[in-house]
Design a protein around this nucleic acid. Structure first.
Length: 555
RNA sequence: GCGCCCAUAGCUCAAUGGAUAGAGUGCCGGACUUCGAAUCCGUAGGUUGCAGGUUCGACCCCUGCUGGGCGCGCCA
């Protein structure tokens, strides 16, 4: 990456200046800041390093800058260097290097923008993981988009990524779900005496599910002992719900590598093994009839119940066993869990759990996102599967479209609380910036169709000298940098802004530069511009692809 | 009471401790007889919630307020 080369050139320049006696001796900072100047006229890259060195060198920043510029060996991609008050060094990319990048992009193929930041380390991204007790509702949408895009970003950054859905098919909520399913099934067969539990799932979808099972299986499960019948109906209902989730997520272009069952954590004595490990490590206490995780001994605010006094494992027990499985059984180098902000209270105990398992807590990252407030008719809608008040992810995706939903949810940082107005989302879907970006792609396709008869294979990109052309190329070569930023910060919203700016530069280029011209005198530059437009198309496709969006050829 | 997150243009949101804080949207005004007007160009809009502090330099880091969201269970 060019910024890395620039940094080492600057560091080397400081060393050389010191050896020549232009700068006094001091330790060269390990991290050399390189950034994009706010004003493009100032250059493509800049470093404020001289301001930071002023104290060390006991010199004015501007004088340090002068010395440094004189002593630096410039990489070949730098065309011009200037010094600006109070001590910035500005670098401008060489035009011939810049235009050559068009060919580099065209020959990159599918790996365009791919980095080796991850060094092929294995990362698991676990996201959505909503309880399988009903259809996915809109509350899970942000989790889905964030997690899925994060996974793609990390893939592009050179990690070996695995996408996982954690199916909470154990525990007390599951039992209530089974009982609800059984009651609805029985009611469908006329047994009004069998009722949905007090804290059961009231949604209409459970009634439908009960009817479907009744139609398919008749009285069979009612003729069994009650426990067995409920279990059998419950399992059918669970399978149905999970199959539905597959479909709903697929409608957003999301596919997992693994659907991991919580129940499986309690098979083959695995859980006992982990409890032994924790006990031997001195992390367990027994009191009030329950087994506790001694988080306070690791600096936590309170201890956590692992096994309840009735002998059943609690949610945290599964969390421990699950992460033991992720790191120790399956050996992921790094794990990212995407959680809603309502789970932020669990962050410290996850850290303590990692310590207790003898794992480096930094290998586990919990990405938290602020919950989305849903509005309909100006009113805030509260979603709950238990009460059955819900707006499903599917109905919104069907109505607004996957691309628009994804872009909307992706374009804000995870820390921002956002409002999703359903009426507005439908009414204004045409104004969603995603269409602006897709239009840029469709426009390129249109230009290429129109210029089909032009032979651009020998297009000479060095003819690209118009400011709009160079601005576009500058934007195009930013892709790796944006992928790196998004991967390092685990913040995919940078992609959304980048894609918009890329589209904007393309539209501006289209305004200023005629690509396909009937004038024979324009043939050479036209061929070069076709190369440029093809390269831009590749970048647009790539960034849209990482965001999980389509790149339509026509709209 | 304690903890986490947030507060930036009318609205929705950006901005790795660096130069004149940017987009979209909305208002107003312009541009189709040539590759797509789902586009482009322009005007207006700011004490970055308040008060201190650190720094050569703060929207960004620290402290204290104010206001909002979310947590603090032998639920998940």
């Amino acid at each position: 990456m060019i910024d890395v080369e620039l940094k080492s050139a600057i560091a080397a320049g400081i060393g050389r200046a010191q050896r020549h006696g232009d700068l006094p001796a001091f330790d060269i900072p390990s991290e050399i800041p390189v950034e994009h100047p706010r004003q493009p006229e100032m250059g493509d890259f800049a470093t404020p390093i001289c301001m930071q060195l002023a104290r060390l060198a006991r010199m004015a920043p501007i004088n340090i800058a002068d010395v440094l510029v004189r002593r630096m060996h410039l990489p070949d991609f730098v065309g011009e260097v200037t010094v600006a008050a109070p001590g910035f060094i500005n670098f401008r990319l060489a035009t011939d290097w810049l235009t050559a990048q068009v060919e580099a992009i065209l020959s990159a193929g599918d790996t365009l923008g791919t980095l080796d930041l991850g060094a092929d380390k294995s990362v698991q991204v676990e996201y959505v993981s909503a309880n399988p007790t009903g259809p996915l509702h809109m509350g899970s949408a942000r989790n889905a988009v964030l997690g899925d895009t994060l996974a793609s970003v990390l893939q592009a950054a050179g990690y070996a990524v695995q996408r996982e859905y954690y199916v909470n098919d154990a525990g007390s909520r599951m039992r209530v779900f089974y009982e609800t399913a059984f009651a609805r099934y029985a009611q469908a067969l006329g047994r009004e005496d069998i009722t949905v539990p007090e804290d059961g799932y009231q949604g209409a979808y459970m009634i439908e599910l009960g009817q479907q099972i009744a139609e398919a299986h008749g009285m069979a499960f009612l003729e069994m002992p009650a426990d067995e019948g409920a279990l059998a109906v419950g399992k059918l209902a669970l399978d149905h719900v999970i199959a539905q989730m597959h479909e709903d997520l697929a409608a957003m272009g999301i596919q997992y590598d693994c659907w991991f069952s919580e129940q499986s954590l309690y098979q083959n004595g695995q859980f006992d093994k982990i409890m032994t490990l924790l006990r031997e490590g001195g992390h367990l206490d027994v009191h009030d009839g329950a087994v506790w995780f001694a988080a306070t001994r690791l600096g936590g605010a309170k201890d956590e119940v692992i096994v309840r006094s009735d002998g059943t494992p609690g949610y945290f027990a599964s969390d421990i066993a699950y992460h033991y499985n992720k790191f120790i059984e399956r050996g992921f180098d790094r794990v990212i869990d995407v959680w809603g902000a309502d789970h932020q209270g669990h962050v410290p105990r996850m850290r303590h759990m990692m310590e207790a398992l003898g794992l480096d807590p930094n290998r586990l990252t919990l990405v938290l996102y602020q919950l989305v407030t849903l509005k309909r008719g100006g009113e805030i809608v509260r979603l709950s599967k238990r009460t059955g008040d819900m707006i499903t992810l599917r109905e919104v995706v069907d109505e607004v479209g996957s691309d628009a939903v994804r872009y909307f949810l992706l374009s804000r940082s995870a820390d921002s609380q956002m409002e999703f107005d359903l009426d507005l989302a439908v009414a204004q879907s045409d104004e969603n910036p995603v269409y602006y970006i897709q239009y840029a792609h469709a426009r390129i396709c249109s230009i290429l169709r129109y210029g089909e008869q032009v032979d651009a294979t020998d297009g000479d990109v060095s003819l690209l000298t118009h400011p709009a052309e160079l601005t576009l190329i500058r934007r195009m070569i930013q892709l790796p940098e944006i992928i790196q930023l998004a991967a390092e910060q685990l913040a995919p919203h940078h992609l959304a802004y980048y894609a918009y700016e890329l589209a904007s530069d393309l539209h501006a280029f289209y305004r200023d530069c005629r690509v396909v011209s009937s004038d024979p005198a324009d043939r050479a530059v036209g061929a070069a511009r076709i190369r440029l437009v093809q390269a831009c198309q590749a970048v647009l496709r790539r960034v849209l692809g990482i965001m999980g969006m389509t790149a339509p050829e026509m709209m």
